[in-house]
Design a protein around this nucleic acid. Sequence first.
DNA 1: CTAAAATCAATAATGATTATCATTATTGTT
DNA 2: AACAATAATGATAATCATTATTGATTTTAG
Lengths: 127, 127
Amino acid sequence: MKYSKQRELILQALKDNPVHPTADYLYSCLKDANPELSLATVYRNLNLLADNGIINRVSGLDGSAHFDHNTHKHYHFICSKCNKVYDVPYDIAPDLEARTTAATGLKTESADVVLHGICPDCQKLYN
Amino acid sequence: MKYSKQRELILQALKDNPVHPTADYLYSCLKDANPELSLATVYRNLNLLADNGIINRVSGLDGSAHFDHNTHKHYHFICSKCNKVYDVPYDIAPDLEARTTAATGLKTESADVVLHGICPDCQKLYN
DNA sequence: CTAAAATCAATAATGATTATCATTATTGTT
DNA sequence: AACAATAATGATAATCATTATTGATTTTAG
């Protein structure tokens, strides 16, 4: 993996961004200040970084893939109104892999948990 | 919701099918015996049945929506090799909604859990 | 039986993502 | 510093799952 300033830019933007952005959203944030950047490059680099374990790809939320610079084990909450993503600590449901294997015999390697609801910001708006 | 023989057919096929099929897979199973059936009809009816709570739409597995005639609370395991889906009992991680709210304050309405691994059939094949 | 409403099949359109391709940038080496 | 080898880029076309549209047909209420 060679250096590229685009990759540097994308990684930094992800680290500065707490909302678990999609490729498209990240592109829309960056393109004004970086008109030479292309959407394909954003997709390419997010996938490359995720494949190398430097960031986390979070699928199964809402049809689009989201990206997360937090590579520790944790779960996600997505707001059904605004689609913002929040982190949820691992210990609300620890050891799901082992528990699944114990209950079903299915050899389990990883577990994704997605909680759905309405975030505090949207609660206020829709009152 | 009026009666239609296509809907009857699709619902019955889903009940007979333990693998949590996608719309596309269900269509490929039915089209030979029912050449008049169209893929759009399968999509339309699966969504309609799911919206009315008669069946369950399972998203977040692998990019395609899967459908499940089991409407009880439970979780899913998907095989990373063959993409077959298995049911996992609810009690491996009960009360995730309440636990999330307790841990984070996020008002949570539903919880999806997806386990990943290799199913027994594929374990045999890849030994 | 007739008309309004729901349904249908076929196909065009959409949205997210990936592949292609000619060009450019990075790297380790003469 | 020039040199190939390779990886990365921008622009755009292609793909895949799904949804919308359209005009014809079927079902049910009156």
